[in-house]
Design a binder for these strands. Structure first.
Lengths: 372, 372
DNA sequence: GTGAAAGCGCTAACAT
DNA sequence: ATGTTAGCGCTTTCAC
């Protein structure tokens, strides 16, 4: 058997000597050093070099030194694709967001990055731009990289997305929504509750004719989370026996300052007597406030305004914007904290499969008690 | 020889039959289907399955169908780590940004994503939070994934970063700055020129005592680009024989609304007669405007304000904010356009190694001619 | 503490 | 149009 092997090897050696550069369409640039090059230079086995990176304490100081020097002279950077293939651990965590332009989603990314850094995972971020088809595409792209966990935004997924996610075999976290029946885990808050909270806040202050502004939808883009907020808002008004038809859905997501200003204009045209408005996002609220200034409508006297998100600008406005805050960076961090034990192979704690990070009403200057 | 090979194979088969689960520390979840499983089910060779994904037109319709069915029943998703290793093309483009919380950087990411999508590349985003040590760490993490191109922000890199980048063997783009001697390529604009432009704009309108607000620095964080803007600003004032000492560097990057408001306060304490201010970012400018409102300083009458970035909020302010605009999404798109031919193996066009996307003064309401 | 062997799942190159 | 073979660069496993 031994002899047979030798023969095969020699035959192989002959062929491979012929073709030096295997793939001409390979990325250009001088060939990178491999673990093999390092091992030769340091006169150790490849395994020793591997251990140098994964478990340096196992090496004898002298060996460690030789390897370190070789690594340095060759400017060796281990190839994680090869490592992943062999160890069956990619070191990736996939994060799929609607958009990065929203600073709250960016905060999620930052929080998650921070939480997973000590474990040496790398984030693989994708964004959908609120396009419905894009989520599927992104999930497939991600799955091809064999992430060790997948974090998606929201609870609404196409059938195919849901199928891909439930079959993917790694932990899945649904972010920023709390589905009744999560695919796997969920970390978030209730968007519906936020709408309700906004409506109740406005009613409690004595506002009478209350409207809302959110994003519309097109054939290929939706903002499910904003829509949930509007729904909660309508519910609260209805169950209080109030008018709940003053809900403007304007423009395609994401909602911007400008869309907020326009949305308010639409609302005022619909019902000039509106005395308070909830906008699905602070950005729209700020836009609405600017529109008020242009129209000489006093805030909060002429119009009460409440937003969502507690974006940085909210507290800085004059008057400062009343809003509902969610700690998005914390959301990301919590997600990381839920995932880390799972990635270490520990079983999921049943209580941590659905984490509500809650929300907080930040009453500031744009809402105030109305004189009856 | 043939017989020898058979023997080796049989021996190998025997061993591998013994150990079913090779790596117990592998990520949990049922074993994913491999190209081999598909090939068996479809009764074709593995290459045919591979071609099904890379070049489906090559297959006979009947073969194509059989493979498609097998792929579907097994829910097969090709493992890109294995593919990358074999083809020596990772399909990654690395993008290293200071932060995602800045919507202009997010815009870059979006633009770049859009540009590279048709070629089926995937972005690998990392952020440094303006920390100097983080850039090195990020670059090393990225290099381990063998990206086919690396995009970094700015021209200032530590020695080690510069070394890693110049030795990495793939195209490198420096973003949003135009170094005199780029490592490889650069797509951006002159931050210094922006500072100059701001100063000249204010001088041309007749403002007399002109200040600026930027971010400070700590031991481990800097905003080189903002600093460049301040430098250009100082230069312009100096060469016009004006006072150039009213430059406040406040707080650690990134500059926020709040920091802008505080920065203005510092500036006013330093020199109450200031009649115009340039802030290194629109966010700080907005913060400064809010501070003005709190102090009943009229804008632009009492204080002229000019920012940078043309963030969405700029045009929405009342009065709308004068600023200097750079099309950041276009910056990302251009970067993609420069990279794509290189990734296809074409030679770099010498003219496209340094692309200036330029800038535009957006004169709006916060600056106006001063009555002498 | 170190090494040898085998194989992770795919594709380039060549053969038919 | 499809198949065969030999690796890609690493890590697991097990032997010493």
């Amino acid at each position: 058997l031994m002899k047979a092997r030798q023969k095969v090897k020699r035959a192989a050696a002959k062929t491979s000597a012929v073709r030096l550069q295997r793939n001409p369409r390979a990325i250009p640039g001088q060939r990178k050093a491999t673990i093999r090059d390092v091992s030769k230079l340091a006169r150790v086995s490849r395994m020793t070099v591997s251990r140098f990176f994964s478990n340096p304490d196992l090496l004898l100081p002298a060996t460690h030194d030789r390897v370190a020097r070789a690594v340095k002279t060759l400017a060796f950077v281990p190839n994680r694709a090869a490592g992943s293939l062999s160890s069956r651990r990619s070191g990736f965590i996939a994060l799929i967001l609607p958009s990065l332009t929203n600073s709250n989603f960016a905060a999620v990314a930052h929080g998650l990055t921070e939480a997973i850094r000590p474990a040496n995972y790398q984030l693989l971020i994708g964004f959908t731009e609120y396009k419905v088809g894009e989520e599927e595409r992104q999930i497939e792209l991600m799955l091809a990289r064999r992430p060790e966990a997948i974090v998606v935004t929201g609870e609404h997924h196409s059938r195919r997305c849901a199928a891909l996610l439930s079959a993917c075999g790694v932990p899945v976290v649904e972010l920023s929504d709390l589905p009744r029946r999560p695919i796997d885990m969920a970390v978030g808050f209730s968007n519906r509750e936020i709408g309700r909270m906004a409506a109740e806040h406005l009613m409690s202050l004595g506002y009478g004719v209350i409207g809302a502004v959110g994003a519309g939808r097109s054939d290929d883009s939706v903002d499910h989370r904003g829509e949930e907020r509007l729904r909660g808002f309508e519910e609260a008004l209805k169950s209080a026996g109030r008018r709940s038809d003053l809900v403007v859905r304007h423009g395609i997501p994401p909602l911007s300052y400008e869309r907020g200003a326009e949305g308010l204009a639409v609302l005022l045209a619909l019902e000039p007597k509106v005395d308070a408005v909830f906008t699905v996002s602070d950005l729209a609220a700020v836009g609405a406030m600017m529109e008020c200034r242009r129209r000489d409508i006093a805030v909060p006297g002429g119009l009460g305004v409440i937003g969502f998100g507690d974006f940085d600008i909210a507290a800085q406005m004059v008057p400062p914007l009343t809003t509902i805050a969610v700690e998005f960076e914390n959301l990301g961090r919590q997600t990381g904290n839920v995932l880390l034990p799972l990635l270490r192979g520990e079983r999921a704690h049943p209580l941590s499969r659905r984490i509500d990070v809650g929300m907080r009403l930040m009453q500031r200057g744009t809402t105030a008690r109305v004189a009856k």
